[in-house]
Design a protein around this nucleic acid. Structure first.
Lengths: 354, 354
DNA sequence: TATTAGCACTCGCTTTATACGAGTGCTAAT
DNA sequence: ATTAGCACTCGTATAAAGCGAGTGCTAATA
């Protein structure tokens, strides 16, 4: 059997009607609303075939039709009309994002919140380093004779600092030596090269009479690993309760519970290519807890060698067109903002407003 | 009518039974379980009087009794047995907290998570500065001839930094001047003293040929305001779905929605005195959305001039004894850990592991 | 040959009727 | 003062009946 044009039209009508009403769709309603000028009987025949082809299903014999995941798949791949954002939506996105560009972690939480607000589904935002971060230089600033600040400037222009206490008063010249050793041995190296050999040779070189060398290496490694590690933000989980498919508290709880574990959020899907939108429908998800939910996600650049993921989780009966449109507009806007700004501050601990 | 000892015993039995089962409590079950050696009929008479006194109520004529908020109030104030934490609980608290002391914001999120895990209710953790933070000193470190790092050390021993770009190459001696001006005028002053007079006089003093003075003042103000502002963390909201009183999705949604707004979390109750536990039962809450929930909260010191709030939100049928015990143990443990560590790192942007 | 009107049939949902039983309140006995 | 006994209440569980939206099939129609 072949999925001809008319069948596609009908499938599209069914999916959109179902997305809208959350009720099984009858032949009559399609006949009236589709604009195809066909009688319910004809629609019925077609729907019956769409059912045997696996694109629709009936909750029970005398009910209307509901799209299967395969049905949604066809819809998403071929039938979906590009959703145009309303002026209100684009304005809101532009307004909120422009204000928040200063701090990158604010931007991504804000982006998540915004997507969640606009789509009414929970949203997640991830950020991770696209390329390994290295330390560009060390500085050591004396505070008093037993305290110093270690300053580390990273390859992404982030600066991190740490206050450290010495075991005995500082001698003249020690900080210069410390700086020389660390700048010679620990800069421009990814985290995994900082092994025990390197560390112990540094300790030998500085003499480490202040008990400070190991603190600095620990700080360096910690900083690199933290900067490299992914960050996850999740907003709007409570919204799933608004969707009828999660009125059953156990379903809602299972999903919310899954999402409330940060590790799961980190493992949510990501699209393979930049700025494409990936859609995973129901059973296409690997996680058992997502088998009857859908995930829509996009990827975007964050500047400073970081990239971000922005996604939405909801019922399979999701307004894919709208969600996809929002996500990709969002991703593009973010990229535009980032591109406009050279030297965008990087996610994390310090804030750099220009 | 008087609330004599026997009535209290019965009230206690009813509350505890109800907390346990979430079902209206019958005279028979009290008679059997209370250990008072009274027949159901006697219990019934007493329960009837407790009802007319406003401490119990009946969902309907032929049902058992359920405590009213006033009933819980009496229970909490007078009748509650101190709950002893199990070894497992105390061990878990000690273990988790000790590992996480390094970074203060980790500690408080972790404390929240822990309380939520142990009690099975959503938990919130707030942190705020107990005394105004000031800047202790400024440092300016040149990176290259158009870039410098501004370093600000705060009165709570936090250090914050920011990378800044100059409009023209750096002259010798400018940084010294910059440091002198800022260290003379902007240190040891709370945020509100940094008004436009101060700022413009600083700009005059430095000459501001590099367009950098205003950036530094903005950074200083921003840093102070951010350090002073309260931070809120919320965990475990999805757990409310586990409690039967929130099986109704609308109730669950109303509460979760309320909690998902950070501003509401910031305005959640706080106890008036340190390390006391405050309990707000149902309608005692000011927020409309909390009128049929209860909040238990405690306050503790965080070191570095910060203090924290740790609270739990749940149904009025809450295991007050257990929750209160967990919270106060938690608060004490945190305080002990903080006291053990001098110079504990302060909430926020930089990390200082010792 | 494609479409559609007509109609019997299915089946979930709502309504109504009935029964059940946990729990109460009252009274009278202890 | 306590309690056994008992009638009464009322929510819930179970069954039966009717409703109606929607289908699938057949036969008429273009």
């Amino acid at each position: 059997m072949e999925l001809n044009e008319r069948k596609k039209q009908i499938l599209r009508a069914v999916v959109e009607n179902y997305i809208d009403t959350a009720e099984p769709v009858s032949s009559k309603s399609i006949s009236e609303a589709s604009g195809l000028g066909l009688s319910p009987a004809t629609i019925r025949n077609e729907m019956s075939e769409l059912t045997s082809m696996g694109y629709l299903e009936q909750p029970h014999t005398s009910a209307g039709r509901v799209p299967t995941p395969q049905g949604y798949r066809i819809y998403v791949n071929e039938l979906m009309h590009a959703h145009r954002l309303t002026m209100k939506e684009t304005e809101e996105i532009n307004k909120v994002l422009k204000v928040k560009v200063q701090q990158l972690d604010k931007v991504i939480t804000e982006a998540g919140k915004l997507v969640s607000d606009l789509t009414n589904y929970p949203a997640y935002a991830l950020a991770s380093a696209a390329s390994p971060v290295t330390i560009r230089r060390f500085d050591f600033i004396p505070v008093d004779d037993r305290t110093l600040i270690t300053l580390v400037m990273l390859s992404d222009n982030t600066v991190k600092n740490k206050l450290m206490t010495l075991t005995r008063p500082l001698d003249d010249g020690f900080l210069l030596k410390l700086g020389a050793v660390f700048n010679a041995n620990f800069t421009n190296r990814p985290e995994y090269e900082m092994d025990s050999t390197l560390i112990s040779s540094a300790e030998r070189a500085t003499g480490d009479v202040y008990g400070i060398t190991s603190a600095v290496t620990a700080f360096a490694i910690h900083t690199l690993s933290e900067t490299t590690s992914k960050k996850a933000f999740l907003t709007g989980t409570s919204r799933i309760l608004e969707h009828p498919e999660y009125r059953d508290w156990e379903k809602a709880h299972r999903l919310m519970n899954y999402l409330s574990d940060g590790r799961n959020v980190l493992n949510l899907p990501e699209p393979e290519n930049k700025s494409g939108v990936k859609i995973l429908i129901g059973p296409e998800n690997v996680a058992e807890e997502l088998k009857d939910s859908s995930v829509v996600v996009t990827k975007y650049e964050l500047g400073g060698g970081m990239e971000g993921l922005l996604g939405v989780v909801g019922p399979t009966r999701m307004d894919y067109a709208k969600v996809a449109a929002n996500l990709s507009y969002m991703a593009n806007t973010l990229k535009a903002i980032v591109d406009g700004k050279t030297n965008l501050p990087v996610l994390g601990e310090n804030k750099e407003e220009e």
